[in-house]
């Protein structure tokens, strides 16, 4: 990961976390952590919550728009999106992975730059950002959209925004955090999002095909390889 990508990831994760906190703080005003936060912030906690939620959303949308530019117009970005696109191999990888996971086979599929897991996560983020951005925008400019979509439209936007938030948060916690933090291979944490690097060992283990591809270009002696 280049510095640029790490900054993109950082902007995404920080805005995401802020959005999750400030969003669920609205929905569950009596939860202990919400009350603690409100007490810490003081009188206008609720109004501040709304403001911070909007600022974070702007950060996330800005980062997303930059990412769109990045994958459209920079060579490394274009390669990135190419690598993220689902391929036929993903279907067979998935089948084989399932077999391996349930113990039908001892052969672990060999992944390229991105496994089907990582591709799913990426596209989930894309999907989530679009949905949340769109519905959030409607709710933000409610007075205008009320006239466009009526109360039923507002109610639908509210429902989508809420359930999508739950889905996204759970996906991050359940899947992403597992792979980054809990997974026995990387415990306590995969530091790639900070350092930008995977070790050769890690590469061999997780992305052997990519390693082979890179090995064709880069001398064997180099210990750390850019993923």
């Amino acid at each position: 990961m280049t510095k640029n990508e790490r900054i993109q990831h950082f902007l995404l994760l920080s805005s995401f976390i802020v959005l999750v906190i400030t969003g669920f703080a609205l929905k569950f005003p009596e939860a202990w952590w919400v009350r603690m936060l409100s007490a810490a912030i003081g009188e206008n906690a609720f109004e501040a919550r709304g403001l911070v939620h909007r600022i974070a959303s702007v950060v996330m949308i800005a980062a997303s728009l930059y990412h769109l530019y990045y994958v459209s117009f920079t060579p490394r970005g274009r390669q990135l999106i190419k690598d993220f696109f689902p391929a036929k191999s993903d279907v067979s990888d998935f089948k084989n992975a399932m077999k391996y996971l349930i113990g039908r086979s001892d052969d672990r599929p060999l992944y390229g730059r991105f496994s089907y897991i990582e591709k799913m996560e990426y596209w989930a983020v894309v999907w989530g950002t679009v949905i949340m951005g769109a519905t959030g925008f409607v709710l933000w400019f409610k007075d205008f959209f009320f006239g466009v979509v009526g109360n039923v439209g507002m109610d639908i936007a509210t429902a989508i925004h809420y359930y999508e938030a739950i889905l996204a948060s759970l996906a991050i916690v359940v899947w992403h955090f597992y792979f980054v933090f809990l997974n026995p291979d990387v415990r306590p944490m995969n530091k790639a999002w900070l350092s930008g690097f995977l070790t050769r060992e890690e590469m061999e283990h997780e992305h052997p095909l990519e390693l082979q591809k890179l090995a064709g270009e880069i001398p064997d002696k180099k210990e750390n390889i850019k993923s």
Binding site: F146, G147, V152
Partner: peptide
Amino acid sequence: HPGATQAFFTT
């Protein structure tokens, strides 16, 4: 909601 004078209600 001063902007919501066009609001319409179906449900």
